[in-house]
Design a protein around this nucleic acid. Sequence first.
DNA 1: GAGTGGTCTAGACCACTTA
DNA 2: AAGTGGTCTAGACCACTCC
Lengths: 243, 243
Amino acid sequence: MHKQWDIDSLTADIIKRIKERTLADKNGKLPSERKLMDYYNVSRYSLRQALSKLSKLGYIYQIQGRGSYIHEHRYQANLMTQSDLGFTEDLAREGKRIQTVGATQRIVSLSEIDFYPSNQQFSDDQLFIEVERFRTLEDKPYLVEHSYYLPEIVGEISEAAMYGSMFDYLSKEKGLTVGFIDKFIRCELLTESYAKFFQLATDMPSLTVRDDSYLREGELVAFSKIYYDYRNATLFMHKKLLD
Amino acid sequence: MHKQWDIDSLTADIIKRIKERTLADKNGKLPSERKLMDYYNVSRYSLRQALSKLSKLGYIYQIQGRGSYIHEHRYQANLMTQSDLGFTEDLAREGKRIQTVGATQRIVSLSEIDFYPSNQQFSDDQLFIEVERFRTLEDKPYLVEHSYYLPEIVGEISEAAMYGSMFDYLSKEKGLTVGFIDKFIRCELLTESYAKFFQLATDMPSLTVRDDSYLREGELVAFSKIYYDYRNATLFMHKKLLD
DNA sequence: GAGTGGTCTAGACCACTTA
DNA sequence: AAGTGGTCTAGACCACTCC
């Protein structure tokens, strides 16, 4: 039988085989692209799309004229990759349990917001739904999410949604599809209440990810800032040179 | 006449035209991919490679069935993008002047190093060339680079190279080509001497980028940690959903 | 239905490595 | 010379948007 592969399932299958160690030889060398094309019965384009993803995730590296090799990188706790970085980290994190242990919402005016999106002008009477969520990973403090939603787009936000995935909520209940997100990664000092959540002293730092979330149509729907415990949060990237 | 376009020059030309505002209509809508293919006389593949880069850089977004649009994002000082993140920020930064204002090097043993690469085992008698470089951007403190080079690969490092681009030095003087870099972005506390350079108090934070630099052949050649002034450093990323 | 971006195939040629 | 990854072309079909 011939399974049909799309790029995502192809990528997933290769990752699975890399982890099982059933694809590479004992030196960590993978079969050539031509052999993999035949094996999976996909075109060069599709195969290389998948290999490119594997490369960005740090699983392999490729050398022109020589071949593709597994790139071991030691397991690190709470390592986020660029592709992991979801709407507000609502994505499944390899079976780990993320819980919201506290959440508040209120309506605020322009003068009350703590930060702004990158390229938006608001009128003076613009209102926002301010949401603060305190979340744990495996029952340990993991992040604080401080968001502003635009009420004329999202309407009201139910209490139930506050404790679940905002991304799914907007998609399923409101029919809103987020198309892309601009991210600004910085290091900032914690306020007292956030520091307390992480059991840190006030003025200790935090790795922050500012998100500007846009609908597919290009409209800003929310902007937020996520604070991570600086002791735990690491963002991983892989850079290939000569591009 | 027909200029031949490769993907890099194609990408650069579209960026140029976006900035000049000579490509999009008044609503920020770009010509369709088919029109751009004809205009530049390239294949769909090449054009979409270029558009994909523009998308990751935050210049445009694309909507299936509708078209491609310019995505304005406000200019921010010292915004790094993932593709900017070079060997040690040696890349040209839009004409801004980066200078090394202090540099030291010494040979150290395994027990003396402050941090380790992600997936490497060293023998107990492994030696390293430790390099510390203090660098300014437009004469203001910008970053401190703390690196360990593997002497059996790079040999000695000349004093001249310490004040220039290590990347160019390895490439031109040593014939070593860095193929890829793993990056680990974190937030850490500054030591006294680094804090002093940034004119900050000790224990103030810093955005750090840990690099593991590998030769094209997959051998580790150096590992380093770059400390940025947390008040100035912002890393930009663009995430497209439904991938 | 026409036009748009998203995906995928088949094939070609090039640059580089290895033998 | 053979094999590898890197680049590029031409063309097809699909999913979605707009009229």
